[in-house]
């Protein structure tokens, strides 16, 4: 058996991204939606690192590093927002939080 083709990594990244989108679209709890976002960011990280390997340059990993930092910051603030929503609305279902509409 030969080595693993790089395209498999990319396909895996795509599948994980799609799963993240599915979670975002289909789940009703705010926290789960947030976790789906984290899954999407991770899949993109995988793609960056894969290409970094392909091109034999480390820039991809740098980008991946930045993505991670931003994701962490975003998780902190986002969870704080979720806490506020829970305090104001009393619910964690996304469909209940829909007052910004026409």
């Amino acid at each position: 058996m030969g080595h693993v083709p790089l395209s498999w990594y990319l396909v895996l990244s795509a599948i994980l991204f799609a799963l993240g989108v599915a979670g975002f679209v289909y789940r009703k709890s705010v926290i789960t939606v947030f976790m789906s976002i984290e899954l999407m960011l991770n899949s993109v990280n995988l793609s960056f690192v894969a290409f970094s390997y392909q091109l034999q340059r480390i820039d991809g990993q740098i980008y991946s590093f930045f993505v991670m930092v931003v994701a962490a910051a975003e998780a902190a603030v986002g969870l704080a927002i979720i806490l506020t929503i829970f305090k104001n609305r009393g619910t964690l279902q996304i469909d209940e939080v829909d007052s910004m509409k026409l």
Binding site: V21, F24, V25, Y26, K28, V33, I94, D95, V97, D98, S99, M100, K101, L102
Partner: peptide
């Protein structure tokens, strides 16, 4: 389209 539902918005983005 502007229904207030985030999930719909996400689907449109997709």
């Amino acid at each position: 389209i502007q229904s207030g539902s985030i999930r719909n918005y996400a689907t449109w983005v997709l």
